[in-house]
Amino acid sequence: MGLIEIRWHGRGGQGVVTASELFAEASMLEGNYIQAFPEFGPERMGAPIKAFTRISEAPITIHSHVYTPDIVVVLDPTLLGQVNVTEGLSDDGIILVNYSKDLESLKKILKFKGKVYALDATKLALEKIGRPVANTSCAGALVKITGLVGIDNFLAATVEKFKEKLPEKAVLANKEAIMAAYNGVEQ
């Protein structure tokens, strides 16, 4: 595996940074080098924000922003008209969107020639977690789509990250959401 760059889109408060870190931490469990960082700026609930993940088998030296991501994940479908989510994404890239309607309409909106995946992650999160936080579901789906990380390691990283911050029930709910997304994402 060479250097893989992932860009995460969402809004402040939706766990965008957490998702970027979670994916990185899971990859590190497999012996890889990682970076996870937000686009630093004023942190405002609801404002469009970006976060980035880099993973690589070799140490990562680049420290600039991510300009040409290999993968884009959009956690909030309402961003689609507002933010150019495919910026810098080449045609052999991948985009995953938290999106409730059919894939064809999503492709029409994105006008993107590469691989497009949709997952109704908000619905899934409401079912499993009881709150519309789509970050873990989307990351779980990305595990399946990309195969960059083993699902066992991803779940282990999730438990490690949340065990001190969330009650046990919430950690389990997140694990369930991840598994549902992992099994449910349309290939």
């Binding site: 870190e21 080098y33 970076q35 960082f37 937000p38 630093f40 420290h63």
Partner: peptide
Amino acid sequence: FDGFITSHKVER
């Protein structure tokens, strides 16, 4: 070390 770039970036 570089503020935010290094101070806030999660790395191995």
